[in-house]
Design a protein around this nucleic acid. Structure first.
Lengths: 270, 270
DNA sequence: AAACCGAGTTTCAAATAATGGAACTCAAAT
DNA sequence: ATTTGAGTTCCATTATTTGAAACTCGGTTT
C-alpha cells in the first residue's frame, strides 16, 4: 500500500491510520490494527484515541471496535460538491443514462485509484454513496485506463511502479508493459474498453473528460454485461458518450474548474 | 464555533483547519483562512500544506484557493456504510417515502448538529449527497429537536450552552428555555414538529429512532409545505412513520449497531 | 525606474509535543 | 489461584512543531 503520508509528520501518520481503518471496511479491533501497523502499541493507541475524540473514527465500546466516524460524511459532502465533477455533470449524466439505458459511471482519479463520484443505474433510482466514494483499481477498469492514458509520463511512471496487478479475471492485464500498450491504443482512438478485466461478464466503454490542455479531469463509462451486449454494441455508443464528456468538460471550463488537482508540492521525504 | 480539537495536539489542530475550510463551503484563499485563524501565518501555512499533500484538501494553483479534497469522499464512503443508519434503513425509507409521497429524511446527530444521512425525494429521483452529508442546526429542525429530546441531561446541557439560536424565521425558537419546554413536550407525545422554524412555508413531523435503552440513534422525518399540507395533516402520518422508525431500530439491533457513538473519553483539556 | 506593497513562502532556535519501552489493569481462560 | 493477553498509562528521551522574522516575487504606486 502506498505511503501517502511520507514526510507529513504526525498529521500524516494519523491520517494513514484512518486509511488503514477504512481499508478493513468493517469495524476493527485495536489489535487488528496493531498487527500491520508500523507504530508501537502506545503510539497507535494515541492516534486512535485522538481520531476518535475528533469524530474521524467512532468507537463501539461494547464490541471494542473502531469504525470510520460520521464527521467524515459531513466533510465529504463539501468535498464532493466543490472538488468533484459530479454536481456539474449531473444533468449530462441524467440525459446520457436515460438515452443509453445502461449503468453509467462518472469517475475521477484519486492518487492511483479510480474513485467513482457519481452513477446512474439503468433500472432502479440512484443508490446513494453505494457508488459515490467507492474506489476501484485503475489498471483494470474502463474509466481507470482511460484516465491513465492521458496522464503525463512523469506522473504515470510512479503509479505503474506501485501497482500490484492482481489478476481478477483471465482477461486482466497483469503487467506494466501490457498496460502501457493498452494506454497507447486508447490515446490512438480516444476511448477504451473493459473487456471483462475486472469481473467476468462485465464489459464497458469509457471516454475521458478532457481539459482544453488535454488533461483528463475524469472519465465517463457505460457498463453492460456480455449477456445483454457486446463490445461492438457498446462501441456504437461512443460518440454519444463523448458528446456528454465534452459537455461536462465545457461546463467545468465555464465554472472554472481547476485544471490540476491537489498539486503535490513535494516535501523532502528525508 | 465549537472547539472539538481541544487537547488533541497537532492532529486535532490540523483537523480543525479542515473544518474551517469546509465551513466556507467554497474554495478559499490562504489569507481568508488566516483571518479567523488562531494560528500564526507560518503554522497555518504548514497545516494547509500537509493537508494538501494528504489529499484532504485540494489546491487550485491557478486561483490559489483551497477546497476540500477528494480523499474525503473515499473515506466517507466507508464511514457512511459502517457508521450511519442509512444502509440498514434503506428499504424502510423506500417504503415510507412511497407511501407518504412526501420528502423523507433520515438524520443522525453529529456533535451538536443534525447530519442528514439519507433522503427520499417524493418527486424527482434522489439527489446524491445533496442530502447525505448535509448538516443543519439541531434546535430548529424536526429531526434535530426530536433527537435532542432523548439525550441525557448531562450531554444536552453543554450542547444548549454553545447554541447560537439564530432566528431563521419568525417561528424559530430563540432561547434555551423555549427549546427545553419543546423537548419536554416531545418526550410527552413521542414526536415533534418543525413549525416553519427553519424555513418559511416548510413544515415537518419527526420521530426518533430509539434503542432498547431509550437512546435516540437517529430520527426520521416527513417534510411538506404549508401550501400542500398542514401540521394536522402531517400528524396523521405519525403512526406510520413511527412504525418505520421501530423497524429501523429493530434492524439496527439485529445487526448489533453500536448503542453509543464515538464515546468521548475526555482527555484533560489543561 | 526605483521603491513599495502584500500575498505567499522559507528559515531556525526555542518551546512543545510525540515517542515507545516498560509497567500496569483487568477480565477471561486455564 | 495463576496465566494470558488485550487494552491502557507512565515518563524520560527524542523529534517535531512553533512562530517571529526574513525573504521572494508579482504587481502597483511614486
Amino acid at each position: 500500500m502506498a505511503d501517502r503520508s511520507a514526510g507529513d509528520g504526525t498529521v500524516g501518520k494519523a491520517l494513514e491510520v484512518l486509511d488503514r481503518v477504512a481499508a478493513f471496511g468493517r469495524p476493527v479491533r485495536f489489535t487488528e490494527l496493531l498487527e500491520d501497523s508500523p507504530y508501537p502499541k502506545a503510539t497507535l493507541y494515541r492516534f486512535v484515541q485522538t481520531l476518535t475524540n475528533q469524530g474521524m473514527l467512532s468507537y463501539d465500546s461494547e464490541r471494542q471496535t473502531y469504525a470510520m466516524g460520521i464527521r467524515l460524511v459531513r466533510l465529504a459532502h463539501v468535498a464532493w460538491r466543490q472538488s468533484s465533477l459530479a454536481p456539474m455533470a449531473r444533468p449530462h449524466l441524467d440525459a446520457l443514462a436515460e438515452e443509453v439505458g445502461e449503468t453509467v459511471h462518472l469517475a475521477q482519479l484519486d492518487h492511483a485509484q479510480v474513485l467513482y463520484v457519481d452513477k446512474r443505474n439503468a433500472s432502479r433510482p440512484v443508490e446513494m454513496y453505494s457508488s459515490a466514494g467507492k474506489v476501484g483499481p485503475a489498471y483494470c477498469t474502463g474509466v481507470g485506463k482511460v484516465m491513465l492514458a492521458y496522464l503525463d509520463e512523469a506522473v504515470l511512471a510512479p503509479i505503474l511502479e506501485q501497482q500490484s496487478f492482481h489478476r481478477f479475471t483471465e482477461h486482466t492485464l497483469t503487467d506494466a508493459e501490457a498496460l502501457k500498450a493498452e494506454l497507447r491504443a486508447i490515446r490512438q482512438i480516444g476511448y477504451g474498453f473493459d473487456r471483462e478485466e475486472h469481473e467476468p461478464g462485465i464489459i464497458c466503454v469509457a471516454v475521458p473528460i478532457l481539459t482544453a490542455g488535454g488533461r483528463a479531469l475524469g472519465a465517463l463509462s457505460v457498463t453492460s454485461t456480455t449477456e445483454r451486449n457486446s463490445l461492438a454494441g457498446l462501441e456504437k455508443r461512443v460518440s454519444r458518450i463523448q458528446q456528454a464528456a465534452r459537455s461536462i468538460a465545457q461546463v467545468s471550463r465555464d465554472w472554472g474548474f481547476p485544471d490540476q488537482h491537489s498539486s503535490n508540492r513535494q516535501v523532502e521525504t528525508n
